[in-house]
Computed example of a mutant assay.
Amino acid sequence: MPAPMRFDARYYRRFYGGPGKTHSASEIARLAAGVDGLAAWLGVELRSVLDVGAGTGLWRSWFRRHRPEVRYRSIEVSPYACERYGHELRDISRWRARERFDLVVCHSVLQYLDDAAAERALDNIGRMSRGLLYLEAVTRSDLPILDLDKSDTQIHVRSGAWYRSRLGRHFFQVGAGLWGSRRSPIQLFDLEGPGALESRR
Score class of each variant (00 low, 15 high):
residue 6 R to Q: 14
residue 7 F to Y: 07
residue 8 D to M: 06
residue 10 R to N: 10
residue 12 Y to S: 04
residue 12 Y to E: 12
residue 13 R to H: 15
residue 16 Y to F: 13
residue 16 Y to W: 10
residue 17 G to I: 07
residue 20 G to K: 07
residue 34 G to T: 05
residue 37 G to V: 03
residue 42 L to S: 04
residue 43 G to S: 02
residue 44 V to N: 06
residue 47 R to A: 10
residue 48 S to I: 03
residue 50 L to E: 05
residue 51 D to T: 01
residue 58 L to K: 15
residue 61 S to Q: 13
residue 64 R to E: 15
residue 67 R to M: 03
residue 73 R to N: 07
residue 78 S to L: 12
residue 78 S to V: 11
residue 79 P to E: 12
residue 79 P to C: 12
residue 81 A to E: 07
residue 83 E to S: 13
residue 83 E to N: 08
residue 90 R to E: 10
residue 91 D to V: 03
residue 94 R to E: 03
residue 97 A to H: 07
residue 97 A to L: 09
residue 99 E to Y: 03
residue 105 V to E: 01
residue 106 C to Q: 02
residue 106 C to F: 04
residue 111 Q to T: 04
residue 115 D to N: 13
residue 118 A to R: 00
residue 121 A to F: 01
residue 122 L to V: 03
residue 125 I to S: 00
residue 126 G to I: 02
residue 127 R to I: 03
residue 129 S to E: 09
residue 133 L to P: 00
residue 136 E to L: 11
residue 138 V to K: 04
residue 152 D to E: 08
residue 154 Q to A: 15
residue 165 S to A: 12
residue 167 L to I: 06
residue 168 G to D: 12
residue 170 H to I: 01
residue 171 F to N: 01
residue 173 Q to M: 04
residue 175 G to D: 11
residue 179 W to D: 01
residue 180 G to C: 10
residue 185 P to R: 10
residue 185 P to M: 08
residue 187 Q to F: 08
residue 194 P to Q: 10
residue 197 L to C: 11
residue 198 E to L: 12
residue 198 E to D: 12
residue 201 R to N: 12
